[in-house]
Design a protein around this nucleic acid. Structure first.
Lengths: 330, 330
DNA sequence: GCCAATGCGGACGAAAAGTGACCGGATGTC
DNA sequence: GACATCCGGTCACTTTTCGTCCGCATTGGC
């Protein structure tokens, strides 16, 4: 049944896997006459996919960018790669596009066969969070959002399905919750779930890394309207433990242009103080992270810290630790 | 024409965008009778997609994980999110799955409408490379692979299309090249293109960040067989400037378990020395990166460096710099 | 300039499929 | 038990699909 639908999909898949195909190759693969192939191409074109054809002795068909995205026909491996990409994208907390990333993630998580899911987990544990190499970290040594949890919650929120889970609050008290999940909101590098707590009959905000033992009850609920902004606001208000962000201003003995060039993207806020000094405003969640920033200042250039006694104290202490370690290593 | 093919795709798309649909909703959207809907569902099931149906008053259809990946029907936004995820995945140099990531990337780049491409570029410039925030960096301040270039080259390699570009070699000499691209290979955090140089009639290895002004001549060439491994080997041999990796062993005055817990994923190689000491082998491309690692050791715990006079010297120097900065800030 | 290779699309008729209406049945929830 | 929902068989009718045959257009190499 439906030879033509599946054949059309297969044609699209072939066109996606190689740029160029001659009619002969395609008819061979699909097992149809050339006339039918032409009709299939026509069909795809009518559906909006840009298929270009070239005549002459080097002729053939090629899939071009069209007006919309065609269905992506992926191999298992590619599916795994995409899921990994989306997960790391989501856990890294890309600003501005979280919602879309989650919706794409939900789509793929929904249909991910278990075997692939296992592959993803294996790969994820083999690679550093956020990918890269050993020393690529953002703040504390253990941010580590559980990407799978994120996917699960995204799916349940999208589909308005009740959830049961265990929650350990800030004081360490654990409780069992039954909630109607609405949105996932990233605030200050952490993910929060905004949900209606069915037992407390009120809105609650749950920090993802405190959620465990999630059960997807496949029971649907009737969601109330809630805009992205409203959700964000609510969560931000709820997050009492505000981001304790530390700022400092580093004054460096270097012209603005030179430092900016050395730092690249990270130095985009460097401003000139005078012809031979510039100031670099930095901000992070901990003094350690600020200390890391200072490591990357060019060697042999003097600098000083402004507006942050905290960082200054830290530098003094850290200088001693480094010196002690160096002495101990002799 | 072909109402049924497009309708089937649309049904799949609907099922992907929400988990649960009743027959009434679907027939309404698709404009067909319920019998036809059932036949469409049947068709999709025959194609291997897992569609579960629930009877009873809360009944409906739901797309489940099947045996394979169904075509992903994405909105424009979601396509952008996926492309972004793949690009950052690729530029971050995920080990072990580069090839697959590139093949998925090629697939989506091939069909990305120009408007979406522009959106991606805009988003990319607004977000830190590798995502995250200010202090998430891997090594040197400026790795910054051009993700778009990567996509372009991946596409040309996959499809065996000749390329023209400008190349600036290590000595700074620029030249125009016409090549037949074969593979993209990541070595030591950098991407290289292995290609046959049509003018020099030999294999050449090009570092991506030295390539510019690429033109895709849409001329195809007949590729020779080349395995992934052969390509990797060739590039690694060609890359004379071998990864200058620095190793050190940090002996910490802390039981193995405690340090391992504090460091989390990064401390997975920590080994016990005796009951109250453990050793942490670390490795990075620069002493600065190693210094960063040391910052994250728990405060107040003494440690010393083994096997790396380089790091020791660096610590002495850095201690002085920190101290000087702290003094200057008074 | 000619030729071979390639893609284009109209016409036709036989075969296949898709479609809706109708039905009795099964399986859930309330 | 009442109700809502999905299930899948059958039938008659309509539409599409498909291969074959055709002359035409375009391209690159000889």
């Amino acid at each position: 049944m439906a030879a033509t639908t599946s054949r059309t999909l297969e044609l699209l898949s072939l066109l996606q896997s190689h740029r160029h195909w001659s009619a002969r190759e395609l008819t061979g693969r699909l097992g149809v006459s050339d006339r039918t192939l032409r009709r299939d191409v026509e069909r795809l074109r009518e559906l909006g996919y840009g298929i270009e054809s070239l005549r002459g002795s080097a002729g053939g068909y090629r899939l071009e960018a069209g007006t919309g995205l065609p269905p992506l026909l992926l191999s298992d491996d590619e599916g795994v790669a995409i899921a990994l990409g989306l997960r790391s994208q989501a856990t890294a907390g890309l600003r501005g596009a979280e919602h879309t990333t989650l919706s794409a993630l939900a789509k793929i998580e929904q249909v991910l066969p278990p075997a692939l899911r296992r592959r993803i987990e294996a790969l994820q544990s083999h690679t550093a969070v956020g990918a890269g190499g050993a020393w690529n970290r953002s703040g504390r040594p253990t941010p580590e959002v559980d990407a799978e949890l994120l996917g699960l919650l995204a799916l349940a929120s999208r589909d308005s399905e009740r959830l049961r889970f265990r929650y350990t609050d800030a004081t360490g008290a654990a409780s069992a919750r039954v909630v109607e999940p609405y949105r996932l909101v990233p605030v200050a590098r952490r993910w929060y779930l905004l949900a209606w707590d069915r037992e407390r009959l009120d809105w609650r905000t749950f920090r993802l890394d405190r959620i465990s033992e999630v059960f997807s009850t496949r029971v649907r609920f009737e969601p109330q309207e809630m805009s992205e902004e409203a959700a964000r606001e609510r969560v931000e208000r709820a997050v009492r433990h505000r981001r304790r962000s530390i700022r400092a201003r580093i004054v460096v003995e270097l012209p603005q242009a030179e430092l900016a060039e050395h730092l690249g993207w990270y130095g985009r806020e460097v401003e000139a103080v005078d012809a031979s000094h510039c100031a670099w405003p930095i901000e992070a969640e901990s003094v350690e992270a600020l200390g890391m920033a200072l490591i990357w200042l060019p060697a042999g250039v003097a600098y000083r810290v402004e507006d942050s006694p905290e960082l200054r104290a830290y530098l003094t202490a850290q200088a001693e630790r480094f010196a002690a370690a160096a002495r101990a290593s002799a």
